[in-house]
Design a protein around this nucleic acid. Structure first.
Length: 472
RNA sequence: GACCCUUUCGUCUAACGGUUAGGACACGACCCUUUCACGGUUGUAAUACGGGUUCGAUUCCCGUAGGGGUCGCCA
């Protein structure tokens, strides 16, 4: 292809899409893998690693393998594996070979690949690369060399193995160690590129020794910088947002989370931030990868989600919102109301994630939701408020019910009340909001009252006014 | 501690060796608005420090400091 430099001579230019490897979708030599160990939840760092592998595989028309590294029988759980698979799927990551999918290199659980490891282990033993400890553990005799790792992201990285002790590759109980099985599987599964976290750089020295001892060419490596907590420490399960499950539960859109994750350690090199995977794909190149760790900013991730939510069309939003509501073990008010869709239309432009439905629905559907501290506090200083609100309610009550009860009519009533009281209409709106919802923040107020209808609105407004919950 | 990687606004990041160092989140102000928001405009805010190389350094080199990673019979 033209490598995108310089203007093209139109007559000589190939078709704009001619560089796409359409016909070699399945014959691309590129094979990458994501290899989680099912000992816990799917970490955002792991999710990003998976995403980058996926992006690279798709961009190259290659193959993504999902391999479950479950050699530590004591720590593996089925629940963890389910959570990881579920999280990947949720993010839109699909694999070509692996669990639930099969493939030419099955099985894809290391716990089921014992025979293969045994075979490779024997090769190592026969070639004299190993020795046995007194307790039965087997170690690999390191050549003790300085290894230069040609990393796609970090450049040439020096790894001094001359002083390192020999690594154990097999425990006394016969089970194999991570380094060994990882390398054997990468050989067996014909992995061409290893894209993983920077925390593996030193392991790579060990791995390269193993590849060489087994007579195999090491893959191309790309070590990506890590994702850190807001305070600069390693993200742990205690940190909010560290697990992909958090975003599923909070009602984030996977596209938004994936987009945000891509921006940690990768950049389109221009000012764009909201990018679909289709837009990211052609720009996913090593030159566009960052070299330093990134701190995770949940606030910005939330902002991005709000952007995606806002772009959703109404049917999609309703569908997803309702799905989220139905997943809850504790139903929210209005969940099975026929008025729900109307409420969702009011709420849609206001929320960052579906989780916030839990704040909006009660104030829309409950007549007696308690008045919040904040709302009460903001009204406390307003003398004579109750009298003014009485006047306001009188005007509102003057509006016809039924189809005449519209936001526009209500606005006129508020204006009339304001005129009578000699105040600006705006001055009445906040107290009215508190009367209607008990909250200081929320959806567009007058449309909300229209949605509620006259009977319910007046009942609620009058009750809160009489209840004396606001402005004593 | 040793070794490796890394360092641009608080955070994520952009800038063929020549820019008033740009964008986004967050924060402040103003505008819009009947309220809460959205949005628009705008403001505060960065090249870690010290040496080189160069006419010229955020950019290349060295050192120092900070940060992160690794140093398992975990993965």
């Amino acid at each position: 292809m033209q490598a995108g430099s310089g203007p093209c001579l139109f007559g000589l230019r190939p078709h704009p899409l001619s560089f796409l490897p359409l016909f070699e979708m399945s014959t691309s030599p590129v094979r990458v893998r994501f290899a989680p160990s099912p000992t816990g939840y799917l970490h955002v760092g792991g999710a990003r690693t998976a995403l980058f592998n996926w992006l690279f595989a798709r961009r190259e028309g290659g193959t993504l393998v999902l391999r479950v590294e479950d050699t530590d029988a004591a720590r593996n759980t089925a629940a963890a594996q389910a959570a990881i698979v579920d999280g990947l799927r949720w993010l839109g990551i699909d694999w070509d070979e692996g669990p639930e999918k099969g493939g030419p290199h099955a099985p894809y659980h290391q716990s089921q690949r014992g025979e293969i490891y045994e075979r490779y282990f024997q090769k190592l033993v026969d070639a004299g690369h190993t020795y046995v400890e007194e307790n039965g553990a087997v170690r690999f005799r390191s050549p003790k060399e300085i290894i230069i790792l040609p990393d796609k992201i970090g450049g040439d990285i020096k790894i001094d193995r001359t002083e390192e002790p020999d690594m154990t590759i097999r425990r006394p109980d016969g089970s194999f160690i991570f380094h060994f099985v990882n390398v054997v599987d990468d050989i067996e599964m014909e992995i061409t590129h290893v894209i993983r976290g920077e925390d593996h750089i030193y392991n790579t020295g060990k791995h390269i020794e193993l590849f060489r001892a087994l007579g195999a060419e090491p893959p191309v490596y790309a070590h990506i910088p890590l994702i850190l907590n807001a305070d600069g420490s390693k993200m742990s399960k205690r940190d909010q947002g560290a697990a992909v499950g958090y975003y599923q539960e909070e009602g984030y859109l996977p596209e938004a989370v994936a987009n945000y994750l891509c921006l940690l350690g990768w950049s389109p090199k221009d000012d764009r931030e909201i990018l679909t995977v289709e837009e990211i794909l052609p720009l996913f190149r090593w030159e566009n990868m960052g070299h330093s760790n990134a701190k995770f900013d949940l606030e910005k991730c939330g902002w991005m989600n709000a952007q995606y939510l806002a772009k959703l069309d109404t049917p999609s939003f309703d569908h997803l919102a309702i799905a989220w509501l139905l997943r809850r073990t504790e139903p929210l008010p209005g969940t099975d109301s026929p008025e729900l869709v109307g409420a969702l239309a009011l709420i849609k432009p206001k929320i960052k994630s579906f989780r916030e439905l839990a704040e909006h629905l009660p104030m829309l559907f409950l007549d007696d939701a308690p008045v919040s501290e904040e709302a009460r506090g903001k009204l406390a200083t307003q003398a004579g408020l109750k009298d003014r609100l009485t006047v306001l309610l009188r005007h509102l009550d003057g509006v016809e019910g039924g189809t005449a009860w519209t936001a526009a009519a209500l606005q006129a009533a508020v204006a009339a009340a304001a005129a009578e009281l000699g105040v600006k209409p705006g001055a009445l709106m906040f107290p009215l909001r508190v009367l209607a919802t008990g909250q200081a923040h929320g959806v567009d107020l007058l449309p909300a009252l229209e949605w509620l209808g006259k009977t319910a609105s007046m009942r609620r407004l009058q009750a809160r006014l009489d209840g004396g919950q606001i402005a004593g």
